[in-house]
Amino acid sequence: MRQTDLEHLQQLMPAAELGQISRSDVSFIFMSVREEARGMPLLRDVGDCIAHRQRTKGTSYQYVTEFVAHFRQTATHGGTFKIDLFFPIESILAQLHDVLRKAGVEYDSVRVDRHSEQWARLLASVLAGTRFDLDMAHCELVHEPQPHLVIQFLEDINGVLRIPTSVAIGVPAFVDSPRL
């Protein structure tokens, strides 16, 4: 991590403790730690999604691919449909704290975690527009009215559930009971 980025991170974190961070601050933070997030695929992928809006690899691409296949299988043949969060904010913040601690950035992570809903809202805003074009569907992260992943299948699904290509489906992305 560049020294100037490290210094800027140290300046930002007291404001983060108070919940006084902006969309650009969140973008900077995740872009700054991207290269340091080795062994933390979720945190690394957040930075990659900010850097590359069209995803063709990474944790998020794998999640979307598996999720869409599972959704299609369940809609076609029935069964139990399970939704796991796309970017669980608690896990992202835990990994962020670990990287920042290792880099020597001093702040109170508990105070930052108190503002997890704000982090989720800002991160959703930063990541809005990230696209995943799969063989069977187009998917995009959107921010309004709540952060979610929109899935639009490229061909009609006929089965237990009929989903025409004109219908987009939204699933939670950051928190499982959004109050954002």
Rank of each mutant, 00 (worst) to 15 (best):
Y61M: 06
L12K: 15
S166Q: 10
D98L: 14
D113A: 12
E17S: 03
L42S: 02
E7I: 01
L96C: 11
A75G: 11
Q118G: 08
Q118F: 06
T59G: 10
E17A: 05
L134F: 02
A16H: 14
R2N: 14
D108G: 06
A51G: 03
G39H: 02
T59N: 09
F174T: 12
M40I: 09
S27D: 05
F81I: 12
F86Q: 03
S22W: 00
F28K: 12
Q62V: 11
Q20R: 14
L6R: 13
H148M: 14
R131W: 01
G104P: 02
L93N: 05
A75I: 14
F67M: 10
L9C: 13
T130K: 04
I83W: 03
Q3E: 14
Q73Y: 06
H70P: 05
N158E: 03
L149M: 11
K102N: 05
E90Q: 09
R2S: 15
V150R: 10
V64S: 10
S60A: 07
V46S: 08
F174W: 14
D135S: 09
V64Q: 08
V26P: 07
A173M: 00
A173L: 00
D48M: 08
S116C: 04
G39W: 01
V160A: 15
S32W: 09
F153L: 15
I29W: 04
E35K: 00
L18S: 12
V46Y: 04
P14Q: 14
D25G: 06
T74V: 15
L42C: 07
Q10M: 11
L122M: 01
L180M: 02
D156V: 10
A103T: 13
R114F: 12
K57N: 08
R38F: 11
F86S: 00
P41I: 00
S32Y: 06
D135Y: 05
H138S: 13
H97L: 03
D48V: 04
A15N: 13
I151S: 12
L154D: 08
P147W: 01
G79K: 13
K57I: 03
S27W: 00
L96R: 04
A124H: 02
G170F: 12
L127M: 07
G129A: 04
T130N: 00
P164K: 01
D176S: 13
I157D: 07
M40A: 12
D84C: 13
F132S: 06
Q95G: 14
R53T: 02
S116M: 01
A37T: 08
F30R: 00
E117I: 07
D133T: 08
D45I: 13
A37K: 03
R131H: 06
Y63R: 03
N158V: 04
A94E: 14
S91H: 11
N158T: 00
M31A: 07
I163L: 15
R72V: 09
H52P: 05
Q3H: 11
G58W: 02
P14E: 13
L123E: 08
T80C: 01
R162F: 05
F71I: 05
R179M: 08
K102E: 09
T59K: 10
